[in-house]
Design a binder for these strands. Structure first.
Lengths: 117, 117
DNA sequence: TTAACATATTCCAATTTAGGAATATGATAA
DNA sequence: TTATCATATTCCTAAATTGGAATATGTTAA
């Protein structure tokens, strides 16, 4: 496609498994240099730099110069928009899970008490 | 690219703005026929069917036959995995927001009481 | 300066994707 | 059956995306 994906947004940024890995690593280990990510991910350096470029573009990571290294750190607030969007539907799935649980319990009752209560 | 995007996952499914719109519509209005979505989205029917196909593939919507219509409804539990993933970082952004707030308050104090307290 | 290191960018090829148009399939009504 | 309505699928094209290789840029040390 094309027409709609003009701009990279946060949802696209985290659609890539490798990029989610990067987010996870930065969350767990704090600011990391590109080289550290290369080691951790087992990807060639240019690939890592490119993924970081996407994450940077949407602002979910930020860079700081430190000697010849570039330290990347997570800007977690940017993930809040995703959280907020998904949270809108939380009520729906918890209700659905409720219903699933209720049906399971109903079946259990029917097992032990075939006539119903 | 290609090598990694072999399987469509839920993150990819909701990376498309139109598909998020579909999710929102189904959440708000309950089960809808394809035609209703076509009207609501203002997209050609084949485009809608294709988006629905992607959403169906990852299980975030389900279809039911009803006469000549196909009713699509949201399977919200599938969104829980996204919620869970993002929630992992909730602590980080709330801390960051705390810090931002604290700095703002600090600046405010410095405004009103230039010598500090 | 120059060499070495860390990272970014560019070019390329393969793949995916969305939209558009046309067409196929499925279901109901006549 | 046949016509019609609702939806899905196929074919095509343009654009985007990723990885890979090569190369460019920037920074520090010698």
């Amino acid at each position: 496609m094309s027409r709609s994906a003009i701009r990279v947004d946060i949802f696209n940024a985290i659609a890539e498994p490798r990029r989610r890995q990067i987010v996870e690593l930065l969350a767990k280990r704090g600011a990391l240099a590109v080289g550290a990510l290369v080691v951790a991910l087992g990807l060639p350096q240019p690939a890592v730099s490119k993924h970081l470029g996407v994450l940077r573009k949407v602002g979910v990571v930020a860079v700081t110069k430190q000697g010849k290294q570039r330290m990347y750190n997570l800007e977690a607030e940017k993930l809040k928009s995703v959280h907020d969007w998904v949270k809108t539907f939380e009520e729906l799935w918890s209700h659905q899970l409720d219903r699933i649980k209720q049906r399971a319990e109903q079946r259990a009752r029917e097992q032990t008490n075939p006539k119903g209560q």
